[in-house]
């Protein structure tokens, strides 16, 4: 009876957490459990799935060089995107963090502006820029630099461009948060001890912004590695990434068991990455940039 007493403090946290826990359970734990179970089923030539505990899907996914190559390609794209975001994002983040401009909130709002437009539309906009009748080609032809439109779209570089376009604000925000938290006096102290402006950046600002860089990088890498739309819209026929494989297996081939195993591989890979990051940096840093 005691546990039903609304004033019983022992149950209070659980009661407060109940809606969230229910949502997590129904929307995350249950579907993932299904996928785990599915990944051990077997797909037959007739199209029917055989329930049971079969390692065939896992064996195929883990040994077939086709999947391995695409995994390597996915990691490469995510890595390249992250590096470009880190380098290109640091400068605006530094600017916003150190500017004397009174309306910093406005600058941060500008950073959020792209999110008001659908990700797919933003991705497609590159077709109007880099496509054969896009603005770059039209300009080049008009200037007489080329006669024929240059094929710039539909390769791994345009996939990276599209992903950077999408992920840059996340990176800037994360770096900004850690730069903003750095005490200006630290830089002044370094300067007074003999550092030039550049040296004090290297000695103080850069090392102290590493947590933000790391958090932004993790976010960019995970989001890039799981991307599905960008390679479809901006990649060539050979630029499929891992999420495209999952889509293909499940939606096109209706092979749920294989698709399940594939998606779990991606999940585990990214999960390991997050765990490593958490081991060294702590996930709290990412939460800061959303706070």
């Amino acid at each position: 009876m005691a546990s039903l007493d609304p004033m019983d403090n022992r149950w209070r946290p659980w009661r407060l957490l109940a809606p969230a826990l229910t949502a997590v359970f129904l929307l995350l734990v249950v579907p993932i459990s299904f996928i785990i179970v599915y990944s051990f089923w077997l797909r037959t030539a007739t199209g029917a799935d055989i329930a049971g505990f079969h390692l065939d899907n896992w064996e195929e996914v883990l040994t077939d060089p086709f999947y391995r190559d695409i995994m390597v390609f996915t990691i490469w794209i995510a890595f390249a995107t992250t590096v470009v975001c880190a380098v290109a994002g640091y400068i605006p983040a530094y600017f916003i963090a150190t500017t004397q401009f009174k309306h910093k909130a406005f600058l941060l709002l500008l950073l959020m502006l792209p999110f008001w437009i659908s990700y797919i539309i933003r991705t497609m906009s590159w077709i109007n820029i880099l496509g054969s009748s896009g603005i770059v080609n039209v300009a080049l032809q008009w200037l007489g630099i080329t006669d024929e439109p240059i094929q710039m779209l539909y390769n791994q570089w345009t996939v990276i461009v599209g992903l950077v376009h999408f992920l840059l604000p996340f990176m800037i925000l994360n770096i900004y948060v850690s730069l903003y938290a750095i005490d200006r006096n630290l830089v002044d102290a370094a300067r007074s001890l003999g550092c030039t402006g550049w040296q004090s950046f290297r000695e103080v600002t850069l090392p102290l912004s590493v947590p933000g860089l790391a958090a932004g990088s993790l976010l960019c890498f995970v989001l890039a590695a799981g991307t599905y739309i960008t390679p479809v819209v901006l990649g060539g026929p050979t630029d499929a990434m891992f999420a495209n494989l999952v889509f293909d297996a499940i939606i096109t081939q209706l092979n749920w068991p294989l698709g399940s195993a594939l998606s779990l591989v991606l999940l585990i890979l990214l999960g390991v990455l997050v765990a490593i990051y958490n081991r060294f940096a702590g996930l709290g840093q990412i939460a800061k940039s959303f706070g």
């Binding site: 005490d183 006096n185 630290l186 002044d188 102290a189 300067r191 007074s192 003999g194 030039t196």
Partner: peptide, 20 residues
């Protein structure tokens, strides 16, 4: 003369020790 060439010792109110 820029600050790094002035050879001054400064102590700040919040100490400003390099945390790393």
């Amino acid at each position: 003369l820029p600050i790094h060439k002035r050879n001054l010792g400064i102590v700040f109110q919040n100490y400003a020790l390099f945390p790393h």
